[in-house]
Simulated scan of single mutants.
Amino acid sequence: MNLRALVSVTGKPGLFKLVGQNKTGFILETLDKQKIKSIVNLSTTKLATLEDITIYGQEEEIKLIDVFEAIKAKGDVIDIKADGTALRAFFNEVAPNHDDSRVYSSDIKKIITWYNIIKELPLFDEEAPAPLV
Rank of each mutant, 00 (worst) to 15 (best):
I27N: 03
D76I: 15
Q21G: 15
D79S: 14
Q34E: 07
V19Y: 04
E51Q: 05
D125R: 03
Q21K: 10
T85H: 07
I36H: 10
I36F: 11
N116E: 13
P96G: 02
V94Q: 08
R102W: 06
G75I: 02
T44I: 14
S38P: 06
A86T: 13
L18Q: 14
A89T: 09
F16M: 03
I78K: 09
D107V: 12
E61D: 14
T49C: 14
T49I: 13
V9H: 05
V77S: 05
D79Q: 05
S8R: 15
F26P: 05
T85K: 12
H98T: 10
F16K: 05
V94N: 05
F90N: 04
I36A: 09
Q21N: 02
T10D: 15
D66G: 05
T24Y: 13
F26Y: 12
I117G: 00
S8H: 15
A86V: 13
T45I: 07
I118A: 06
P122M: 02
I36P: 02
L31M: 10
I65M: 05
N41D: 08
G14R: 11
T44K: 13
G25P: 00
I39M: 08
I71F: 01
K46Y: 13
V103F: 12
V19G: 00
G11H: 00
T54I: 06
S38Q: 11
A95G: 01
G14Q: 05
T49S: 14
I71K: 01
N2A: 00
I78T: 11
K35G: 05
I39Q: 10
Y115R: 09
A5F: 10
V7K: 03
V19K: 05
F91P: 02
L28P: 07
D32E: 07
K17R: 11
I108S: 09
I111L: 12
H98L: 06
V9S: 08
V19M: 07
A95P: 09
Q21E: 14
G20Q: 00
K33A: 15
F124S: 00
V40T: 09
A89E: 13
A5H: 14
G14W: 08
D83Q: 09
K37D: 03
V77P: 04
I117Q: 03
